[in-house]
């Protein structure tokens, strides 16, 4: 067992070098700041120990924001995984035009942030947005709805926009996984003559588990840190209804210049994400070793 350590490290060394060189200082710096009252507006930056952390953990608002983040994360990751898996299964079939469709799949992700903001803001606009017009035409709504300014439609709109950009990533990764197991799936299906759905649940999904766990983990990490789409669409509003941790970290650090508090929040979010990742790994990635 032990004799493998050094060869393994040899394989890993270029990657570790890149990561360590770039991350150790910034991470250490942020960690250091989180134990100080460090606001760029004031010269005085005293060491305060765990005070930043205790103030955050003791505030009601923080737990409310954690709740909002959890709701956002669970819903959007669920949707991304489901839609992503379905799209990947479809693109794994052979049909005319699938090459083009596979490439076009990347479109939502490739649109720059600022354009995405305009796109969704205008689609959802209550007075000249297209969504209202279409829904009205097919008779789903009776009057123009102001999607971003009441709950739960504000949260739902943000999730829809977010899911749309993230589905390509999930679908792409799952699709590649499907490609590498397609032979086993076909063989197994030939042997027991299983139907489409049995095949999916009994054969494909278990074989794909390592890849699915990784996608699930990535999407959870991304969703827990979400910031951009909230920034453009709702600014965390109405009230605090869509204020998530990523937004709160941004507003602490860049609006208040309270880098101490902001870093402490970031550390807590990092820790939370790590716990979730480890739990996924432990319970979903059961392995032979």
């Amino acid at each position: 067992m032990k004799n493998n350590f050094w060869p393994a490290l040899g394989f890993l060394s270029p990657a570790l070098l890149v990561i360590l060189v770039t991350i150790v200082f910034p991470f250490g710096y942020a960690f250091f700041l989180s134990f100080h009252k460090w606001n760029l507006k004031y010269r005085d930056t005293p060491f305060v120990g765990f005070k930043n952390y205790s103030r955050i953990l003791g505030s009601e608002t923080f737990w409310e924001i954690v709740g909002t983040t959890a709701v956002f994360c669970v819903l959007s990751v669920f949707l991304i995984m489901t839609i992503g898996y379905l799209i990947a299964l479809l693109l794994n079939e052979e049909f005319w035009g699938r090459g083009m469709l596979r490439a076009l799949l990347l479109v939502p992700w490739a649109i720059p942030e600022v354009v995405n903001g305009i796109l969704w803001k205008w689609l959802l606009d209550p007075s000249f947005g297209i969504l209202n017009r279409i829904l009205m035409k097919i008779g789903l709504i009776e009057e123009y709805h102001s999607w971003l300014n009441s709950m739960p439609s504000a949260m739902f709109s943000v999730i829809v926009a977010y899911v749309w950009t993230h589905v390509p990533l999930a679908a792409l990764i799952i699709l590649a996984g499907l490609q590498s197991i397609s032979k086993e799936v076909k063989e197994a299906a030939l042997v027991d003559g299983a139907g489409i759905f049995d095949r999916l649940i009994l054969i494909t999904t278990p074989l794909l588990r390592p890849v699915l766990v990784v996608v699930l983990m990535f999407e959870t990490i991304f969703a827990l840190k979400v910031f951009d789409i909230i920034y453009v669409l709702t600014g965390g509003g109405p009230g605090r209804a869509t204020t998530v941790l990523g937004w709160q970290i941004y507003s602490r650090t860049f609006t208040n210049l309270a880098f101490g508090r902001g870093s402490a929040l970031a550390m807590l979010l990092g820790l939370l994400t790590l716990i979730v990742a480890v739990l996924y790994f432990k319970y979903l990635n059961k392995e032979e070793d």
């Binding site: 942020a30 650090t253 970031a266 994400t273």
Partner: peptide
């Protein structure tokens, strides 16, 4: 990769 880039 778990700490948001904003904080770094």
């Amino acid at each position: 990769r778990l700490i948001p880039a904003i904080a770094l």
